[in-house]
Design a protein around this nucleic acid. Structure first.
Lengths: 195, 195
DNA sequence: CAAGGACTATCTATCAACAGATAGTCATAG
DNA sequence: CTATGACTATCTGTTGATAGATAGTCCTTG
C-alpha cells in the first residue's frame, strides 16, 4: 500500500472517530494529507469505499492486537477491557466502529456490512476464548458503552469506573477456577462461568 | 408548544436516531412535516438549536418515564434495563443521545452540553436510587453499549443477550437482600451493593 | 365597536459555501 | 511506450441561512 493511500486512510480514520460517516469530506481529507480532493477519489472512488476500507483495517488491527495480548495474558475479559481502554485514552478517544455502529441505519451498505463484521468478530473471538454467548455480549456491550459514556461526558476516567466491576468479578472467578479456596468464591465462579 | 413545533422536533428526533447530527437537513425535516425549510428556521433558528431542543426533550421524557416506572417496580437496574429495551425494540431502535454521544467531539457546543446532561442525569438518578457510582456507570454502559451492538448487528435480540447477566445478578442480589437464606447468597448481595 | 399596531407563522426567492463525482491532462518511472 | 499517480477544471446538486412579502390573530386604544 502506497504511503499516500495509508495517509488518506489515517486521516479518514481520525475524522470518522470524531464525526462518523458524515463527519468527513474528501476535501478535508485532501487538506489533511496535502493533496487535492480528486486525488483522494483516485485511491478511493467513493466515500463508501474509503469508509469501508478504514473500518476493515481497524477490525484487522484489533483482531491482531487481541491475539498478541492473549499470549501475554490468557484472560479474555482483561485483554479486551484493556484494548478498548487504549482507545478511550488515545488522542481520538473513540473506536470508529462504535461511532458508525451507533448511526448504523444511515450507512451505505458496504460500510454497514464492515461495521457489522467488526462486532461479529469481537463476539466470535470472545466466545472462542471461552465465554458464553451472553457473557460475550455483555462484556462487549459494557466496554463499547463505556467508550460512548466517557466520550459524551468528556471524561476518560468514566471508562475505568464503568469497567471496574467487570474486572473485579472476573478476577474473583479466575481466582476460584485456578485456586479453589472453598464454597464462598466457588459460587461466584459458577455465576461468571455459566454465562 | 404549537403542533408544528412538536412535529418538527418529532421529525428531527427520528432522523437523529438514524444518522446523528449530520443525518438530517432542514429541507428533509420540512418535507417530513409538510412545510418549507424556512419555516423550520422560524421555529429553530439554527440546526444547533433544533438538535439541542430534541435532546433536552428526550432527557426530560426519559427522566419522567423512569420515575413513573419506579413506582411500579422499585428495582432501578430492572427499570433502566427495561426502559432502554423499549428503545431498542422501537421503530427507530436507537437513543438519539447515544448516537450523538458517540460522535460527541464533532458536535456544536450546545448540543454536546445537552448530551452530556442526559448521561449525567442517568448516572445521578441511578446513584440516587441506591447504586454506587461505579455500579451506575457499569449498568449505564452496558445498556448503552447493548443498544449500539443491537443496532450495528441489526438484531434486537442482541440487547436481551447483553443484558441477561445484568438482570440475573441483580435478581440474585435482591433475593438475598429481601429474603436472606444463608451465607451463600449473602456474599453476592455484598458484592452488588458495595459497587 | 372599530381602527391601529404588534406579533405569529408561513411563504417565495436567493445566497454563498460546500458536497461528491467525473473527464481529461501531464509528468515520471519502469 | 505505457502504466501509475497526481493534477486542473468543472458539473451538478445540496446545504444552512437570510431577507422580504403576505396573511392571520390578538390586544390595545380612541
Amino acid at each position: 500500500m502506497s504511503d499516500v493511500k495509508t495517509a488518506i486512510m489515517d486521516a479518514a480514520e481520525r475524522r470518522m472517530q470524531q464525526g462518523g460517516f458524515g463527519g468527513f469530506s474528501f476535501r478535508e481529507i485532501a487538506t489533511d494529507v496535502g493533496i487535492k480532493s480528486s486525488s483522494v477519489h483516485y485511491h478511493f472512488p467513493t466515500q463508501e469505499d474509503l469508509a469501508a476500507a478504514v473500518i476493515r483495517r481497524w477490525a484487522e488491527y484489533t483482531s491482531e492486537l487481541i491475539d498478541k495480548e492473549l499470549e501475554k495474558d490468557p484472560d479474555p475479559v482483561r485483554v479486551w477491557t484493556k484494548a478498548f481502554r487504549g482507545t478511550a485514552f488515545s488522542e481520538a478517544h473513540m473506536c470508529p466502529c462504535t461511532v458508525l455502529g451507533a448511526a448504523s441505519q444511515d450507512l451505505p451498505e458496504q460500510v454497514a456490512k464492515e461495521v457489522k463484521g467488526f462486532f461479529k468478530m469481537c463476539q466470535d473471538k470472545l466466545v472462542a476464548e471461552g465465554l458464553s454467548p451472553s457473557k460475550a455480549a455483555e462484556v462487549l456491550s459494557t466496554i463499547t458503552g463505556a467508550l460512548v459514556l466517557a466520550n459524551a461526558l468528556g471524561d476518560t476516567a468514566e471508562y475505568d469506573r464503568a469497567t471496574r466491576n467487570l474486572l473485579r468479578q472476573n478476577a474473583a472467578a479466575l481466582a476460584d477456577r485456578h485456586g479453589p479456596r472453598g464454597p464462598r468464591t466457588k459460587r461466584l465462579a459458577k455465576v461468571a462461568a455459566r454465562d
